[in-house]
Design a protein around this nucleic acid. Structure first.
Lengths: 181, 181
DNA sequence: GCTTAAGCGGACCGACCGGTCCGCTTATGC
DNA sequence: GCATAAGCGGACCGGTCGGTCCGCTTAAGC
């Protein structure tokens, strides 16, 4: 696996990129054929790199989670806990908004070790962010990263059918306001 | 249509009931076969009563919407605007919670006149409920029944994967708090 | 440039599912 | 009870899609 022919590596990259695009454009039920078409490869090639459709999805999800994780770790260094927390919420909201189809069924993908691991680490770091704000008394007690993740994801999901383009901002703001102590 | 054989009417009722159960139990992607099995009829019989799968779904949805509509109209008579509004939100939340699979893809069903009509009427009445509270200064301005519906639906959706059974109450409470002026 | 194996891709398979059809059943009116 | 048409249901069809397979291509090492 470490040794891979150059063309194979190139195809792998293109498949991952195409899959991310396709999930964002089409939705969670994109067909493998569509992803392969966008990547410019035959669909057999997709299955060479990923044993099942869900494995491909898990790979894309865990990449996204890793990005969020890195950002959350940076935010832990910020002096102002509340600003750090809210900044994370807004960034996560934008990420979910971009790839709503991916996160929609994320629970089905926790059977993949990579996703479970990334999710666990992200929750740990975000819980630290949350506890810092709670200690400063500016966030409702009894709320953890799962609650925040669920609520923010839901707010985004709710805004997808709204006619006003700024609906997602208003909804996330409602959630943030509702989460205050 | 008005004249219908007794057994046909009985089967129609059983199909509607079975469909409601099946959507709640299995999810939005229940097969016609599963619904027919639960109703104790052949799946050809389902198609005799409803031209397509979506038509059946629309029938179940509009029945639910009509129930909510009747309740919302009752609440308009209540003297306390805020209590009436919050009571409606909690009732709607429970309805969505019971039949989340139905409401999940409700937007796809507005092409059916019955659904569009029921939805429109419900929004009108709920907007009245909302405006009464806004006039009393206890609800955020610029929010309408679509926003509330989306947010509450999202809160319920978000709570489905939570481990704590009371998550939905807490999430709906967060939304209600966030909606205050 | 030759050898070789890694890689490719599209034909193919089988499961699934929405929807149709038609021969059989049965409620209904007389 | 009989005639009749409304109703039934399961066999069947066609399209879709995830996943397999194998003959051809081509990168890589010498």
């Amino acid at each position: 696996m470490a040794v891979r022919r150059a063309d194979a590596q190139r195809n792998l990259d293109r498949i991952l990129a195409a899959a991310a695009d396709a999930y964002a454009d089409v939705g969670p039920d994109v067909t493998i054929d569509e992803i392969a078409r966008r990547a410019g490869v035959g669909h057999g090639t997709v299955f060479r790199h990923f044993p099942t459709k869900d494995a491909l999805r898990a790979a894309v999800i865990s990449a996204r989670l890793d990005e969020l994780l890195a950002y959350a770790r940076e935010l832990l260094e910020r002096p102002d806990p509340r600003a750090a927390f809210e900044e994370f919420v807004w960034t996560a909201a934008e990420a979910v908004r971009r790839d709503r189809a991916l996160f929609e069924g994320i629970e089905e993908c926790v059977t993949f070790e990579e996703v479970a691991e990334a999710k666990k680490e992200l929750h740990e770091v975000v819980d630290k962010l949350i506890r810092r704000v709670q200690r400063s008394g500016m966030l409702r007690r009894g709320v953890d990263s799962r609650d925040v993740g669920a609520l923010v994801g839901a707010a985004i999901q709710a805004s997808m059918h709204a006619e006003r383009d700024d609906a997602w901002r208003r909804y996330v703001q409602v959630v943030l306001d509702g989460l205050r102590a």
